[in-house]
Deep mutational scan, measured.
Amino acid sequence: VTTYKLVINGKTLKGETTTKAVDAETAEKAFKQYANDNGVDGVWTYDDATKTFTVTEMV
């Protein structure tokens, strides 16, 4: 189990959260659900070296 981080660069919501998951795919599903629940829709990137997902909403 690995800890993954999500950085949110939203128009109205900004911040970070973490989740523990067995792999990046599982973490991504959890983060996308979290973003969807919070009304964040944007471009996703993932950095495997730092285990960090970033979602950026276009203005």
Rank of each mutant, 00 (worst) to 15 (best):
residue 1 V to Q: 13
residue 1 V to N: 14
residue 1 V to F: 12
residue 2 T to N: 12
residue 2 T to Q: 14
residue 2 T to H: 15
residue 2 T to D: 10
residue 2 T to R: 08
residue 3 T to E: 15
residue 3 T to R: 06
residue 4 Y to E: 01
residue 4 Y to M: 01
residue 4 Y to W: 06
residue 4 Y to S: 01
residue 5 K to F: 13
residue 5 K to Q: 05
residue 5 K to V: 11
residue 5 K to T: 11
residue 5 K to M: 07
residue 6 L to S: 00
residue 6 L to H: 01
residue 6 L to G: 01
residue 7 V to I: 13
residue 7 V to M: 07
residue 8 I to H: 03
residue 8 I to M: 09
residue 8 I to C: 04
residue 8 I to W: 08
residue 8 I to K: 01
residue 9 N to W: 12
residue 9 N to G: 04
residue 9 N to H: 10
residue 9 N to D: 11
residue 9 N to I: 15
residue 10 G to N: 07
residue 11 K to G: 09
residue 11 K to L: 13
residue 11 K to C: 15
residue 11 K to Y: 08
residue 11 K to Q: 11
residue 12 T to D: 15
residue 12 T to P: 04
residue 12 T to V: 14
residue 12 T to R: 08
residue 13 L to W: 13
residue 13 L to A: 08
residue 15 G to E: 10
residue 15 G to T: 15
residue 15 G to N: 10
residue 16 E to P: 04
residue 16 E to I: 12
residue 16 E to K: 07
residue 16 E to D: 06
residue 17 T to P: 03
residue 17 T to D: 03
residue 17 T to E: 05
residue 18 T to Q: 09
residue 18 T to Y: 13
residue 18 T to I: 07
residue 18 T to M: 12
residue 18 T to E: 15
residue 19 T to D: 03
residue 19 T to P: 01
residue 19 T to Q: 07
residue 19 T to C: 11
residue 19 T to R: 06
residue 19 T to N: 04
residue 19 T to H: 08
residue 19 T to K: 05
residue 20 K to T: 15
residue 20 K to C: 11
residue 20 K to M: 15
residue 20 K to W: 15
residue 20 K to R: 08
residue 21 A to P: 02
residue 21 A to M: 03
residue 21 A to R: 03
residue 22 V to D: 11
residue 22 V to W: 09
residue 23 D to N: 11
residue 23 D to R: 04
residue 23 D to Y: 04
residue 23 D to W: 04
residue 23 D to C: 05
residue 23 D to L: 04
residue 23 D to V: 03
residue 24 A to W: 14
residue 24 A to K: 14
residue 24 A to S: 13
residue 25 E to D: 12
residue 25 E to A: 13
residue 26 T to L: 06
residue 26 T to S: 12
residue 26 T to Y: 06
residue 27 A to T: 01
residue 27 A to C: 02
residue 27 A to K: 00
residue 27 A to W: 01
residue 28 E to Y: 15
residue 28 E to P: 00
residue 28 E to C: 10
residue 28 E to N: 05
residue 28 E to F: 15
residue 29 K to Q: 08
residue 29 K to D: 05
residue 30 A to M: 13
residue 30 A to S: 08
residue 30 A to L: 15
residue 31 F to E: 00
residue 31 F to P: 00
residue 32 K to S: 04
residue 32 K to V: 08
residue 33 Q to K: 13
residue 33 Q to I: 14
residue 33 Q to E: 09
residue 34 Y to H: 04
residue 34 Y to F: 09
residue 34 Y to A: 03
residue 36 N to C: 12
residue 37 D to N: 14
residue 37 D to E: 13
residue 38 N to K: 15
residue 38 N to C: 12
residue 39 G to Y: 06
residue 39 G to T: 04
residue 40 V to E: 02
residue 40 V to K: 02
residue 40 V to T: 03
residue 40 V to W: 10
residue 41 D to Q: 12
residue 42 G to N: 01
residue 42 G to D: 01
residue 42 G to L: 02
residue 42 G to M: 03
residue 42 G to A: 02
residue 42 G to F: 03
residue 42 G to C: 02
residue 42 G to H: 02
residue 42 G to T: 02
residue 43 V to K: 09
residue 43 V to F: 11
residue 44 W to V: 02
residue 44 W to R: 00
residue 44 W to F: 04
residue 45 T to W: 06
residue 45 T to N: 09
residue 45 T to S: 12
residue 46 Y to C: 01
residue 46 Y to W: 03
residue 46 Y to S: 01
residue 47 D to W: 03
residue 47 D to V: 05
residue 48 D to C: 05
residue 48 D to H: 08
residue 49 A to P: 08
residue 49 A to Q: 11
residue 51 K to C: 06
residue 51 K to R: 11
residue 51 K to N: 07
residue 51 K to Q: 10
residue 51 K to W: 05
residue 52 T to V: 06
residue 52 T to Y: 02
residue 52 T to I: 07
residue 53 F to S: 00
residue 54 T to F: 09
residue 54 T to I: 06
residue 55 V to G: 00
residue 55 V to T: 02
residue 55 V to D: 00
residue 55 V to H: 01
residue 55 V to E: 00
residue 56 T to K: 05
residue 56 T to C: 06
residue 57 E to T: 08
residue 57 E to A: 09
residue 57 E to N: 05
residue 57 E to Y: 07
residue 57 E to G: 05
residue 57 E to I: 10
residue 58 M to L: 11
residue 58 M to D: 13
residue 59 V to N: 12
residue 59 V to K: 09
residue 59 V to C: 14
residue 59 V to S: 12
